[in-house]
Amino acid sequence: MPREELISPDGLRTDGRRPLEIRKVTCRMGILPRADGSCHLEMGNTIVLATVYGPRELSSRQSSCGIIRCEYSMASFASTDRRRGKRSDRNSVEMASSIKKTFENVLLTDLFPKSRVDIFIQVLQADGSERSAAINAVTIAMVNAGIPMKDLIVSCSAGYMENTTVMDLNHVEMITRGPQLTLAIYASTERMATAHLESKASFEIFENLIAIAKKGCLQMFDVMHSSIERYSLNLIASRDHIATFGSRA
């Protein structure tokens, strides 16, 4: 094969991870003060910014439960070749509608009738697994906006290459076009929310991919949950801290 190997003889991947390791995840919530919820999520070199507005007035048509709108775009500087970022290209539209469907099932839309929630996703750096990064970022932005939802949705990708199943693919691993699965699950029940498979895979490989992706989701959940908790406790502490002072003064 002309291309270099994806998994070294020592069992390490191109970026030095073991097959069942996710990349370093850092997330920051509430960074955009004008939005109701926002999240800046980094998974390795993949960086996604998700913004949530709402629930807010829905002027056009009446509905018994809230509706969700989603827009996905990739910055023109996000990948190695510079291209004009278009919101209407086929990939983005597909991505937006699949994310919209995922969140229609998890948000308690009947609690905000006649309102809408707008989701804006921007990929600032694309280094593989943008779909799962986007889903994770939107989940956290939803939490940040205080929009009621059944459960946290966490997502992770898995791929099959050179007889190994690996989780959380990076760009180099994604362009091999092997069997790749992006899985999103409900964190506490581990039920499947979305699955997106690219290229054909035999049944055994597919099952393996699901199991590995699920493991990755749970790893992702730990990171996300702890950063939500840290952020929230910080806010509460800050609010209560000065409030007790105010009442004493």
């Binding site: 939490v143 009621p148 409900y186 939500i228 910080n234 502490a237």
Partner: peptide, 28 residues
């Protein structure tokens, strides 16, 4: 531009918070 002033600040010890339970969506 992505750093809100709140993030720059060191963690305030959440002493008041410890007594009550914090939950995220989906938590028991």
């Amino acid at each position: 531009i992505f750093v809100s002033p709140f993030e720059q600040e060191a963690v305030v010890t959440p002493s008041i918070v410890k007594s009550s339970q914090f939950v995220a969506p989906g938590d028991d």
